[in-house]
């Protein structure tokens, strides 16, 4: 593993921690798109089914479990524990508009026509667009809290740095995965477009956020 990938993974963990700590500290999931979190949950579950079939390293396994578990926790906090604070009236993006194209594309363009491989491909395509409901929610509410800015920057940088990792691996190891690279480029573009979409959105400070 090279430094780019490790740095990217740390940013990925940081993004998730930012989200969970915000919900935990303020006992509120205001401003967070439950739909994006459901999509990320699907991403992790469909991608990390290989926990049962392929062992890469202890690091990989621990991280995979971390992503699946924290994503389940986020969904639980939003839809059960702090359900009353979930702003479902602002979370209106139709996720089937993302799920169906990703499902169809993964059936057509994949490395191999076997279940695990199609699910991995679906997961990779879905990850690239999973943030869209969150971006629309921020746009619709017209305000964004600082934790959400940190979350979006960390999550966007994570895949952008993976692109550097893939360039590095191509040069050093002649290794590349066109599906991952294509989806990673799309994902990075979506975050960049997202920041353009959200320019002009007011940065708001929530009542409970100003704690040390």
């Amino acid at each position: 593993m090279n430094i780019f990938r490790f740095a990217a993974d740390l940013l990925h963990v940081f993004a998730i921690a930012t989200l969970l700590l915000k919900i935990w500290n303020t006992r509120s999931c205001a401003g967070i798109s439950g739909k994006s979190q459901i999509l990320f949950g699907l991403v992790y579950v469909t991608r990390y089914l290989d926990l049962f079939t392929t062992y890469v390293s202890l690091y990989n396994s621990v991280m995979k479990v971390f992503f699946v578990v924290t994503s389940a926790v986020a969904i639980f906090l939003i839809y059960v524990q702090y359900k009353k604070t979930y702003e479902h009236d602002l979370d209106l993006f139709r996720i089937e508009l993302l799920l169906l194209p990703c499902a169809m594309l993964s059936l057509v363009i994949n490395h191999e026509d076997i279940v695990l491989e199609v699910l991995w491909t679906f997961s990779t395509y879905l990850e690239s667009v999973a943030i869209i409901p969150q971006l629309f929610m921020v746009k619709k509410s017209g305000g964004i809290e600082k934790f959400m800015i940190r979350y979006l920057i960390a999550f966007g940088s994570y895949r952008a740095i993976y692109l550097i990792n893939w360039a590095y691996r191509y040069i050093m190891e002649s290794h590349y995965d066109l599906i991952a690279i294509f989806a990673g480029i799309l994902q990075t573009i979506i975050y960049i477009l997202g920041f353009f979409l959200l320019r002009g959105v007011k940065v708001v400070v929530s009542d409970k956020e100003e704690e040390p």
Partner: peptide
């Protein structure tokens, strides 16, 4: 070359 199905990343 492309190592098909080598998913060693996250």
């Amino acid at each position: 070359a492309q190592d098909e199905n080598l998913h060693d990343e996250l």
